[in-house]
Simulated scan of single mutants.
Amino acid sequence: MLEIYIPDFGSVKLEYLVSDFTGTLSVDGTLLPKVREKLNEIAQFLKIHILTADIFEKACTELEGINCKIHIIKGENLDIQKEDYVKNLGAERVVALGNGINDRRMLKTARLGIAVTEGEGCAVDALIAADVHVRSAKEGLDLLLNPKRFKATLRL
């Protein structure tokens, strides 16, 4: 669990990290440098769930050795599927990472939403739905490893 109090934002008690894979933790389906190590470090205090349509069909291979649950989503309404997944975990206990338009609803629903701009960009709707924007997955994961940084970003 990760607990932090952010003035004017409130108490945050997180149990889960829910992240998109393609474009968030990876570029062209290849896991980004340092992400493996950071995810395994975060897995010591948060349960990690990766939600992906896996368009490059590499997620399971790339995430091998990381303490996480991988959920391949298929069909239509991927944004609603991701939002429902977060709600089923208990949205108030979730921090979400994403970059795509299909991540916007989970970013908005999660207690803490982090929009990531990596090599594949970030959809404007995802950016607007998030609480925080970072330039890379590494920066987003570093926020979770150094949670006092959220105070500087989210307080009034």
Rank of each mutant, 00 (worst) to 15 (best):
M1H: 15
L2M: 11
E3A: 11
D8F: 15
G10Q: 03
S11I: 14
V12W: 04
L14W: 01
E15T: 09
L17P: 07
S19F: 00
D20S: 01
F21V: 05
F21M: 07
T24K: 06
T24R: 02
L25S: 03
L25N: 03
G29W: 01
T30V: 01
T30H: 04
L31V: 00
L31S: 00
K34S: 15
V35G: 02
L39F: 03
E41Q: 09
I42H: 00
A43R: 07
Q44A: 07
L46W: 08
L46Q: 00
I48Q: 10
I48V: 13
L51V: 00
L51A: 01
D54V: 04
F56R: 04
E57P: 08
K58G: 15
K58H: 10
T61A: 08
E62S: 06
E62C: 04
L63N: 02
G65W: 08
G65I: 04
N67V: 03
K69Q: 14
I70K: 04
K74E: 15
G75H: 05
Q81E: 14
Q81H: 14
Q81P: 07
K82P: 06
E83M: 07
Y85N: 03
Y85V: 04
K87N: 14
K87W: 10
L89V: 07
L89T: 11
A91N: 01
A91R: 05
E92L: 10
R93L: 09
V94K: 02
V94H: 00
V94R: 01
G98I: 06
D103Y: 01
D103E: 09
R104Y: 14
R104W: 02
R104E: 14
R105P: 12
K108F: 13
K108S: 12
K108P: 06
T109L: 04
T109G: 10
L112C: 06
L112S: 09
I114S: 00
I114W: 04
A115F: 07
A115R: 06
A115Q: 03
T117V: 11
G119E: 03
E120K: 10
E120P: 08
C122W: 10
A123M: 13
A123S: 14
V124R: 15
D125Y: 05
D125M: 07
D125W: 04
A126W: 02
D131V: 12
R135W: 07
K138W: 12
E139Y: 02
E139C: 01
E139V: 06
G140F: 07
L141W: 10
D142A: 10
L144K: 01
L144N: 00
L144M: 06
L145I: 07
P147W: 00
P147V: 07
T153M: 15
T153C: 13
L156I: 11
